[in-house]
Simulated assay, not measured.
Amino acid sequence: MLRDIRPLQKIPSQYWLRKYYFSRALFSLIWVAAAFSIGQHSSYLAAILLIIYPAWDALANYIDSTRSGGISKNRMQAFNIIVSIITTVSVIFTVRESMNQVIAVFGCWAILSGLLQLGAAVQRWKNSNAQWSMALSGGQSTIAGAFFIFQAQMPVPPSIINIAGYAAFGAFYFLVSAVSLFIILRKKNRVSVC
């Protein structure tokens, strides 16, 4: 009897993760659309979008960590919250200077948050499904961060579009995780009904 109950005890966290991943994907898709539509035509709106992106990441990680056992149990996310807050403040100061400095800040953030996301995915792997795409996302974020730092050294200034491509890949991975969890939970529900 205990064997039948234990897998179902993990389902609420799986439902939360599915909802969380869908909301992260939706936010990123809206952000990318805003970057391509209004962000590249207005430096003021581009600056706001560039500040919002890491701030949202800090907030999203905070909400997820509190819903997934608390910050003390999710240390990777706790560090990610701190890194994202520092990034937000750094973008506020560098966005006035040059886009090269902004993309360098995003590069450092992408490397650190990518490694932390990879660590969080590995930590969750035992209890949660669909973490392979989060691990891939973390790895790709790290590589993208190194590329951003390289771009920051170029004489031609980068634009918000460079970061929008990165955000689009993030949206894709969150969507893959959400859909994977949706399929897994649907199968579990069918099995529990039978």
Score class of each variant (00 low, 15 high):
110 A>L: 07
110 A>Q: 08
111 I>V: 15
111 I>M: 11
112 L>S: 12
112 L>H: 02
112 L>I: 07
113 S>A: 10
113 S>I: 06
113 S>M: 05
113 S>Q: 11
114 G>T: 05
114 G>I: 04
114 G>L: 06
114 G>P: 08
114 G>Q: 10
115 L>H: 02
116 L>H: 10
116 L>N: 10
116 L>I: 10
116 L>Q: 10
117 Q>R: 12
117 Q>T: 13
117 Q>P: 00
118 L>M: 13
118 L>Y: 13
118 L>G: 11
118 L>K: 04
118 L>A: 13
119 G>W: 04
119 G>D: 03
119 G>L: 03
121 A>T: 07
121 A>E: 07
122 V>F: 14
122 V>Y: 14
122 V>W: 13
123 Q>A: 14
123 Q>I: 08
123 Q>K: 15
123 Q>D: 15
124 R>V: 01
124 R>L: 13
124 R>S: 15
124 R>D: 15
125 W>P: 00
126 K>M: 13
126 K>D: 15
128 S>M: 12
129 N>P: 09
129 N>Q: 13
129 N>M: 12
129 N>D: 15
129 N>F: 14
129 N>K: 13
130 A>P: 02
130 A>H: 05
131 Q>G: 04
131 Q>H: 06
132 W>A: 15
132 W>E: 14
132 W>P: 03
132 W>N: 14
133 S>A: 15
133 S>C: 13
133 S>N: 09
133 S>I: 04
134 M>E: 11
134 M>N: 12
135 A>W: 06
135 A>K: 07
135 A>C: 10
135 A>D: 06
135 A>L: 12
136 L>T: 12
136 L>K: 07
136 L>R: 08
138 G>N: 06
138 G>T: 07
138 G>K: 05
139 G>H: 09
139 G>V: 05
139 G>K: 09
140 Q>A: 08
140 Q>S: 04
140 Q>W: 12
140 Q>Y: 12
140 Q>G: 00
141 S>V: 01
141 S>A: 12
142 T>E: 02
142 T>D: 01
142 T>Q: 03
143 I>D: 01
143 I>K: 01
143 I>S: 01
143 I>V: 15
144 A>H: 02
144 A>Y: 08
144 A>S: 08
145 G>V: 08
145 G>I: 07
146 A>D: 00
146 A>W: 02
146 A>G: 07
146 A>Q: 00
147 F>W: 13
148 F>S: 04
148 F>D: 05
148 F>I: 04
149 I>N: 05
149 I>Q: 03
149 I>E: 04
149 I>L: 11
150 F>N: 01
150 F>L: 07
150 F>Y: 13
150 F>I: 10
150 F>K: 02
150 F>R: 02
150 F>P: 00
151 Q>D: 11
151 Q>M: 14
151 Q>H: 10
151 Q>V: 03
152 A>L: 08
152 A>R: 09
152 A>Q: 09
